[in-house]
Design a protein around this nucleic acid. Structure first.
Length: 154
DNA sequence: GCCAACGTTGGC
DNA sequence: GCCAACGTTGGC
């Protein structure tokens, strides 16, 4: 089983929306590297951090589980969707979605600032300079630091 | 295949 | 709103 981190803007779709919906189709990933993680890496049962980006306090908000492996992202064919991709075709769809399931919301979110302060997370993909991936892997060791030991500035 | 221009992401 | 970083596009 693998671990992931997936970003969403809370103004668009946040952890509270997922808690209410219980499951959702995670659509709109429009970056090839992120898509390849979805396509080649994600398996049902994998766990992912739900990360809030582009907001007052960017933070890991909770955990979700991959509920269904990659499938064609329907939004790419929807002309009214912001995720519409006129260059994608039904015969050769470009973009993939996964279904995710709510697992838990953290009582205390873990802000980006706190992740940065923990040297054990120095290689976390999220913290790499210029990182813009909306889907990225997290190692088992990193996952344990985040959720078991809890990040600290030590 | 190079590379400048442009668009997007996302923290601050 | 600013801006750094990066991906994509398209002319050549």
């Amino acid at each position: 089983m693998r671990y992931w981190l997936m970003k969403s803007e809370p103004a668009e779709y946040g952890i509270d929306d997922l808690e209410r919906d219980r499951t959702t189709s995670w659509e709109g990933v429009r970056n090839y590297q992120a898509r390849n993680f979805i396509r080649d890496g994600m398996k049902p049962g994998d766990l992912a951090c739900f990360y809030h980006s582009s907001c007052a306090v960017p933070a890991i908000m909770g955990v979700m589980e991959i509920a269904r492996a990659a499938y064609t992202d329907p939004a790419q064919f929807d002309k009214r969707s912001p995720y519409h991709d006129p260059a994608s075709t039904r015969d050769a769809p470009r973009w993939l979605a996964v279904e995710v399931k709510f697992v838990k919301k953290l009582a205390t979110p873990i802000p980006l600032e706190r992740l940065r302060a923990d040297r054990r997370l120095a290689s976390l993909a999220l913290l790499r300079r210029g990182n813009r991936l909306s889907v990225m892997p997290v190692s088992a060791a990193e996952w344990n630091v985040i959720f078991s030991a809890g990040p600290s500035a030590a």
